[in-house]
Write a protein that binds this DNA or RNA. Structure first.
Lengths: 344, 344
DNA sequence: GAATAATGAGAAAGCGTTTTCTCAGAGCGT
DNA sequence: ACGCTCTGAGAAAACGCTTTCTCATTATTC
């Protein structure tokens, strides 16, 4: 038997009693079923407002087999990128009366699977944001997580996938620096397990192939301020005049570290970020970066999810992953390579 | 009758059938009830794993009268402060096996009440983050939202409340500027409806009373980058040498705008922020601000909520609001008032 | 005016659990 | 050997809702 709450919430039965009708009729009225006589409907509505009746969503969910909630699994909620996706998703879902449940895996990829499964059971669908789990695990898990939408990840299992073309974006940034006369570049890489870092590396391979004359060094890194800030020495040691940071956060950390050393940006060194987070317009100097329409990505994630939930035939949605192209956002952290450093 | 899913999820009944026991026994085993014979328990567990049985949380919620979920209502998810609270709350709640449901009111205070009520019914409790609704409305709503925790807001209705002492913080920042020799200050205010802006104004009133010699001007503002960026003219026109921005975002916008005009910070003008968001350490110059332990605030919100849910006697928790004191974080965006501007 | 169709509302089953109630059977003492 | 307690498991109610099924009432038609 269920637990009896200390003060029982008022339910459909109370309204039915007060209006002198059956549970069924109350339910019908509450759901706008027009097979109910107008007089009775009015009486029920009156009773409902008088008792301040609010249907219990849990009972509703059980009967209807849906929760009007979707889950989102993110590796780290402190990352502005994931925050923006969450926001876009949440806003878009709210438009259609859906709520968002959060599951933060704290970058612990081993917990991700359990977390995802648990979240999925509470929701009508799941958005997996750049999952850190292996391809094999993802594919194995996929069936039990449907309907599911992937962000910055693909899988052979059938699931819509939204990708940002980080490879193309980083290439454009590199080309941008080359166009400014830089010949020695450095890439401040991101986290090992990050799929988006892999895409950047792939893009840079292509870039290298197309520009054998350019010296491009790979430096170890990460994804936050501290990493950028602590990389000043490595960057200077590399002799690069143009630095491609993994993302805007790293770039900002680097900018700050360079400033402390009295090294001028862009006069001495040019720096680029990635993502175009809102802050990038307001750094000093303003940050050249590759803009990712991240909020739109969250929105799109919801739209794909909605199609799945509503069972829209899959041929209405694109088969392969939807790819978002970053847009080069030239600002003042990049400039012509300085004459003296250009030489060596 | 409930909706029959296209492919029925496997339920407790399937496990019971396979193990040759009753629903009840399966439930007992799954919940670690030791009144079940070890042999039978093992058989049930085997059946469960073989069928990959996962209890349906909705059914569970209905029977148990709890959802293991709490809701958070925020005025704007794009605000780093609310993001940080959300993060702290989510992490802390996850520790105790609770999930967080998001309700973003998009600063529309009229929707807030409905949103809150709806979220509450889906959850075991509600965290209201700086609600924009009126005091009267909040108090009227409070009973139906219990258990509830307030952040940056109080109410006469009984509910734990976590407050940041913005008044004290802004006073310290102002004192800091005065200590550096500034005599003409300006406050770039926040949104009208924001309670935290009201607290800052109150603090500044006190400050004025204690420093009749200081010229403190109030400038209209807001809470984001753009506002700070667009306020450069107003700030310059005010003749102030020290500017108290509503928060770090506004300060960063201002910093950027001043930089574009070639006005040096802190040599020509000193600027302070508020909140100490992670970015504040990495602006150029680094931002003097009042640090708010915001993630801890989210954490505390969960702990208060947990006490309410577990029905811990209220005398265990403090009666009045818990107040968090901001800590002055002196960095390089503030410096001695310049001789030439100090005069006029 | 009687047979038929249309309308509207109640009874009850079902959603998937938990938990109380109940009772069969085992263990034990006398 | 009989009655007692105790253990363990099944039957069934409860959680709060939706919806099908069913049937009573009224409207329609020849």
């Amino acid at each position: 038997m269920g637990r009896r709450a200390t003060t029982r919430r008022i339910g459909i039965a109370d309204v039915a009693l007060k209006a002198g009708v059956s549970h069924a009729t109350v339910s019908r009225v509450m759901n706008g079923n027009f097979t109910v006589d107008a007089t009775i409907a009015a009486r029920v509505r009156a009773a409902a407002t008088e008792l301040n009746y609010q249907p219990n969503p849990v009972g509703r969910s059980l009967a209807l087999g849906k929760t009007d909630t979707i889950g989102i699994v993110v590796p780290d909620l402190s990352n502005p990128t994931f925050q923006a996706i969450l926001r876009g998703l949440s806003m878009a879902a709210a438009q259609d009366g859906y709520r968002v449940l959060i599951a933060d895996s704290s970058e612990v990829s081993s917990e991700e699977a359990i977390l995802a499964g648990e979240a999925r059971r509470r929701c009508d669908g799941l958005v997996l944001c750049a999952p850190r789990m292996s391809d094999a695990e993802l594919e194995e898990l996929a069936p039990s997580l449907q309907p599911m939408v992937l962000i910055n990840r693909t899988t052979d299992a059938h699931a819509p996938s939204l990708m940002v073309d980080y490879g193309q974006g980083i290439q454009e940034l590199a080309e941008h620096l080359v166009g400014l006369g830089h010949t020695r570049l450095a890439f401040l890489a991101g986290p090992e397990r990050s799929a988006s870092n892999g895409l950047r590396l792939l893009g840079l391979e292509k870039f290298k192939a197309g520009h054998p004359e350019i010296d491009l060094q790979m430096l170890e890194g990460g994804s936050n301020f501290e990493v950028g800030h602590q990389s000043v020495d490595a960057v200077l040691a590399s002799g690069a005049t143009g630095v491609l940071a993994f993302n805007d956060l790293v770039a900002m950390g680097l900018l700050s570290g360079l400033h402390e050393r009295g090294i001028r940006v862009p006069e001495d060194i040019s720096v680029t970020g990635f993502d175009d987070i809102p802050f990038a317009r307001y750094t000093t100097p303003t940050l050249t970066t590759a803009a990712v329409p991240i909020t739109e990505l969250g929105q799109q994630a919801w739209h794909r999810m909605r199609d799945l939930i509503r069972n829209v035939p899959s041929d209405a949605a694109p088969e392969g992953p939807t790819v978002f192209q970053p847009r080069l956002e030239g600002r003042s952290s990049t400039g012509p390579a300085s004459a003296e450093r250009r030489g060596g």
